[in-house]
Computed example of a mutant assay.
Amino acid sequence: MASSGRPRTAEQWRAHLTEYSADFLRVADADQRRELGDERVASGWLGFAGASPAALAAAEQRLGVGLPPGYRAFLQASDGWLEMSPFVWTMRTTADVGWLRDLEPEMIGAGDEDDELMARALLVSADADACFWLLDPGDVNDEGEWAAYVWASWYPGLGDRHDSFADLVAAERESFEELSARDGQAVEPDGAEEPVAEGRRLAAPGDTARQ
């Protein structure tokens, strides 16, 4: 892991996402399981095959910029994702990740203090509950990571600043665990090790393509 303990490489992302998949499926209700489908529930993997080098290169050429390393590694582990947080149901892929100004132009020019950031932000989330996950190419740390934010209709502006995409994912996972606990559901019950290990096996390189 990186110094922050967050996933940075594709292998680290696979391990992190496999554990998150197992956590989510342990507390998913019948409707969520039905929407995911029997095959995906049985696999224990909420993602897809990892993006190929060609797909990543094509996305970066289309965007005109190299993607931050942690987010790029996430796409290498899974090109898209389902149920990333309680309010984000799908993540964009290398084929449809893009600039907020192009994908949601009505969000730009509202006249508030976040306009400049919103106008340059990369939109990485897709289907969601009135919110967007954004990466800011104008705020880059020494490791090349872009600052990350959530814009949501229930905030007065952008939410908290996160140092990277991985930090945003970690914060949203904490929210998922807190919401599950309030619902009286144990996210990590005893006996969870075996399904997590099986999920790791299925998510190994070469196996993700069958999910």
Rank of each mutant, 00 (worst) to 15 (best):
A152I: 07
V196L: 15
W133C: 12
A171T: 02
A57T: 13
V187L: 14
Q185S: 14
W13R: 10
E145N: 03
A197I: 04
A126E: 03
D23A: 12
P156H: 06
D142C: 03
G144E: 05
S164Q: 00
D102W: 01
R182E: 11
A209T: 13
A197K: 09
A55I: 06
R34P: 06
W154R: 03
M91K: 03
R182Q: 10
E11C: 10
A77E: 11
R14A: 06
V88Q: 03
M84C: 08
S180A: 15
S4G: 06
W154E: 00
R72V: 11
A209F: 04
V41L: 11
Y20F: 13
E188A: 15
L67M: 14
L17K: 08
L25V: 07
S175M: 03
A197P: 02
R14V: 02
Q32D: 13
A57M: 10
P137R: 04
L122P: 05
A22H: 06
W99Q: 01
A22E: 09
F165R: 02
L46Y: 15
F87A: 11
A2L: 05
A42M: 05
G50C: 13
C131W: 07
A55E: 09
A10E: 15
P205T: 14
A126S: 02
L75V: 02
E194S: 15
A166F: 00
A42E: 10
D167Y: 00
Y71T: 02
L17I: 04
D136P: 07
L75I: 01
A10L: 12
S21G: 09
G199D: 05
D183V: 04
S85E: 08
E19V: 12
R62T: 03
E193N: 11
E177T: 13
A10G: 14
D129I: 05
